[in-house]
Design a binder for these strands. Structure first.
Length: 667
DNA sequence: GGACTAAGAGAGTTTCTAGT
DNA sequence: ACTAGAAACTCTCTTAGTCC
């Protein structure tokens, strides 16, 4: 029996302890990692990559247990986006007791991660968190037995994944004890140059000399029979109808009228980048010349151009609402002649639009038709769009459509964290949206590309990309969201659009990527290793030179006593830099002279200000720490730093100055 | 005409700040 | 103490400008 088969038998034995029965192809893909080789596992979406990871982790867990080394067993499972953390934990629960798994959620700081690290066997986190912990605490990569990189095609350039690998290369690569690297992805991508070169680059970045993919015929059959078969993408072309074209024509007409008012030469075509450039340039000229009329016209032209772009994809009511809001916001008491003219043109246009009450947007009606067509008992549909505005507008619109209501189809939306242009979502709302989509309260989910990667809803049977095309990896990933049998993936776009062109290019790239994998499978191992070693040597020398630079920067960190802190407004000297102290997450002054003479304290507000009478700049807040006198927390925006040679530098954040001078920590 | 670079927009993530 | 929002950072894509 060969060593490989040994491993397989052993693996099958392990499966008795799992709460799932792995498919044969999953065992084949896990093999290299169980042999202890760093390895990239690539197989199409939906085939249970996370289960393979759990299998590998379990294999090593048992191995360590047998050798009585379980105390050393530590695994990190890194995922590119936060909402994947809890999702992947659920999969691992099929192979491990939940008290051995730890979800590092957003309220963990590096110190807390460092402390919690020892409590559980497997931690799940985003790469930035791991990176920060490695940099700010004593945690090192050789503490880990295995590191899984989920969606490892990100390991490139300055992505946090690659930053972690740079630490790997500069700290543990030459050691005998180092973590086993396992990369998981549905598609490595084709890169910019040759896809095969790209594949070698990815291997070098991840220090993986093998790429596990389905080679064996039996495995292919096993995959195809057990996992719902892959879908072919279809592009659904839309021809714009006369109504939209007439609206566009109207906007063009109004714009040319506005243009004449400022004697501009012929306007560029609306909806194209030249028009935006024209707006930008003209605005600049108008601002320099202080030409108010021109500024007004440019403002209106810009809004009309936005309308021109929106009316194809968005519901008409949404476009009208946006325009109305613009009109409302720009009302002034005594408008100039030009302003009144623009306003009246827009108002006329709005009245004209209101008449089109039963206007049909062909792209939207196609979307509704698609949803109705693929909607089944207990089915789910994902609509992917480009911007946050799309998600909100489409979601509101779809929820009003009678055809959908009658079929019991309600719709939710999902976007990333934070607030942009007044559209926001926090973590709880995200979780709620996904939960409602899973439990069926929402049968349709409209989302930005946050949902493109990793969102795993088994009943999701169709994905509609609504005028949304990203890169070739995105095409593969979005297809993988349709998990149910006979799933569908449709791209809705205007005929002849840029999106059509890009989608076609993506398909070609995807084909090339498959080809690169075939070359890899066919090529002599030695030849591959030569190419791999060459890339890796290049990578190592680059990292070495980077770390040399880094060490130099470390060395020239200035003694804090060589800088002085001054008031940002009146330049009054406040205290010497040696009196600065850091206590997470803020900075304080411990200078007695400063406290006694340089500031006025407002006890009721718990704030202090520059003591110069004509200044009074706010400099910071009082912070009460248990059983001690108040600390003087300095606001970075209230002060400026004076360097040797009398150079004054204002910083907007503390990380700027703390990378220049050494600041002591509070004890 | 093709390759490269820079800037801008829109998406993401984390950290820090300020208000309740 | 908690939470929401701003700021700072990266990534991808597109466009415009420059160089060969």
């Amino acid at each position: 029996m060969s060593k490989n088969e040994d491993i397989l038998v052993e693996l099958l034995d392990q499966t008795l302890k799992l709460r799932f029965v792995p498919h044969k192809f999953q065992l084949s893909l896990a093999k290299n990692s169980c042999l202890g080789e760093n390895n990239i596992i690539t197989v199409r979406t939906g085939s249970g990559k996370t289960l393979i990871a759990a299998l590998i982790a379990r294999y090593w867990y048992e191995k360590y247990a047998k050798q009585d080394k379980l105390a050393d067993f530590k695994v990190a499972f890194i995922v590119p986006t936060r909402n994947l953390v809890s999702q992947q934990i659920k999969v691992f629960e099929k192979a491990f007791a939940s008290n051995e798994l730890l979800e590092i959620s957003e309220n963990y700081n590096p110190q807390k991660i460092f402390c919690s690290f020892w409590l559980r066997k497997i931690i799940f986190l985003t790469p930035q968190k791991l990176f920060n912990t490695l940099n700010q605490t004593n945690l090192t990569l050789d503490s880990f037995t295995i590191i899984f990189f989920d969606e490892c095609h990100h390991t490139n350039d300055k992505h946090p994944y690659n930053e972690i690998m740079k630490i790997y290369y500069s700290t543990v690569f030459h050691k005998t004890v180092k973590p086993l690297i396992v990369g998981l992805t549905a598609s490595l991508g084709a890169g910019k140059g040759s896809p095969y070169d790209h594949l070698i680059n990815m291997c070098a970045n991840l220090d993986c000399k093998t790429v596990s993919n389905i080679i064996d015929h039996d495995d292919q059959v096993d995959l195809d029979t057990n996992i719902p078969s892959p879908l072919t993408d279809t592009i659904h072309f839309i021809d714009l109808n006369t109504e939209i074209n007439s609206i566009k024509f109207n906007i063009q007409f109004i714009c040319s009228q506005l243009g004449l008012k400022v004697k501009s030469k012929q306007l560029p075509k609306l909806g194209h980048s030249e028009f935006e450039q024209f707006i930008f340039d003209t605005n600049k000229v108008a601002a320099i010349e202080m030409n108010r009329d021109l500024l007004t016209v440019v403002e209106y032209l810009n809004e009309l151009n936005l309308f021109y772009q929106r009316c194809e994809d968005f519901p008409l009511e949404y476009c009208i609402e946006k325009l109305k809001k613009f009109v409302k916001d720009s009302v002034v008491e005594e408008p100039t002649t030009i302003k009144s003219f623009c306003m009246s043109k827009i108002n006329d246009f709005l009245i004209e639009l209101e008449k089109k009450s039963n206007f049909i947007n062909p792209k939207l009606s196609c979307l509704i038709k698609m949803i109705l067509k693929y909607n089944k008992e207990n089915s789910r549909g994902l609509v992917l769009v480009r911007t946050r505005h799309h998600t909100k507008a489409l979601c509101e619109y779809l929820n009003k459509v009678n055809d959908l209501k009658e079929n019991g189809i309600s719709c939710g939306f999902l976007i990333g964290l934070g607030c942009v242009d007044g559209i926001s979502m926090n973590e709880n709302q995200q979780r709620e949206s996904i939960e409602n989509f899973k439990n069926g309260k929402f049968k349709v989910l409209v989302a930005t590309d946050i949902a493109q990667e990793g969102l795993d809803v088994p009943t999701c049977n169709y994905v509609i990309r609504y005028e949304f095309v990203s890169n070739e990896i995105g095409t593969v990933q979005s297809r993988g969201r349709a998990r149910a049998k006979h799933g569908q993936c449709i791209l809705i776009t205007t005929r002849g659009s840029l999106n059509e062109k890009r989608e076609n290019e993506n398909c070609i790239k995807e084909e090339m990527m498959e080809q690169a994998l075939k070359i890899f499978n066919a090529i002599e191992k030695n030849q591959f290793l030569n190419e791999f070693n060459f890339k890796q040597a290049k990578l190592l020398s680059m990292i070495r030179s980077l770390s040399n630079n880094y060490n130099q920067i470390e060395k020239i960190l200035m003694d804090s006593s060589r800088v002085d802190v001054h008031c940002r407004d009146c330049s009054q000297f406040l205290f010497n830099g040696s009196n600065l102290r850091y206590r997470e997450p803020s900075y304080f002054s411990i200078c007695k002279l400063f406290k006694d003479n340089m500031i006025n304290v407002d006890i009721s507000k718990q704030k202090f200000f520059c003591s110069v009478k004509s200044c009074g700049k706010e400099l910071g807040r009082l912070v009460q720490i248990r059983n001690s006198s108040p600390l003087y927390m300095i606001d970075i925006k209230g002060i400026t730093f004076k360097f040797p040679g009398n150079k004054m530098v204002p910083y907007s954040k503390w990380s700027g100055i703390s990378s220049q001078i050494s600041i002591q920590e509070f004890k």
